[in-house]
């Protein structure tokens, strides 16, 4: 991919995500993925975006009442702000550690809550920021550069 972030072209999207509805989980991520394919972004980068988006979408579906993706795509990068109204994370530092999960047993039975969500996102992105307030919700923002390779 050529072109830098100084380019004026920018696409902005709001994608709502419903909490608790696992049958629709992944739709917002799929939409983002398909748009990047149309832009000709490299498969390796798309894979990283897909992982990060899907993991954060699942987090919203699994834990929050509702949430949304605010997506900004420029010629050089994608930025996603995943914001939800949910229980929040008590200790973000712990949640960032592999294997640590706050998932209740019923979620684990469905195959979620392995404690890999946030660590997987971190591995996939070039930059991330997470802010959470217990009882209010979580804001996760991340950025992936299109020029990057397999591991960013």
């Amino acid at each position: 991919m050529s072109g830098g972030s100084d380019s004026e072209e920018k696409i902005r999207m709001q994608l709502p995500i419903r909490g608790g509805d696992f049958s629709k989980a992944g739709e917002a991520s799929s939409k983002i993925k398909n748009i990047l394919k149309q832009l000709g972004v490299s498969p390796a980068v798309i894979k990283r975006v897909a992982i990060a988006c899907f993991e954060s979408e699942i987090n919203i579906v699994a834990y929050a009442n509702k949430g949304q993706f605010s997506v900004d795509i420029t010629t050089g990068e994608i930025r996603v702000l995943a914001k939800d109204e949910g229980p929040g994370i008590e200790c973000v530092e712990m949640a960032m550690m592999e294997g640590f999960s706050t998932a209740p047993p019923e979620l684990r039975e469905m195959g979620f809550g392995a404690g890999m969500g946030l660590p997987n996102i971190k591995k996939a992105v070039d930059w991330m920021k997470i802010e959470s307030q217990v009882g209010v919700g979580t804001e996760l923002e991340f950025k992936i550069l299109f020029g990057g390779g397999e591991n960013g």
């Binding site: 991919m1 050529s2 072109g3 380019s7 072209e9 920018k10 696409i11 999207m13 748009i35 394919k37 149309q38 832009l39 000709g40 498969p43 795509i73 420029t74 010629t75």
Partner: peptide
Amino acid sequence: PITPLDTNVDEAMKKLKAIE
């Protein structure tokens, strides 16, 4: 892969905006 909207990224972005 199927041909992207444009080989030039800026053009592809413009087209994508128009599509949206």
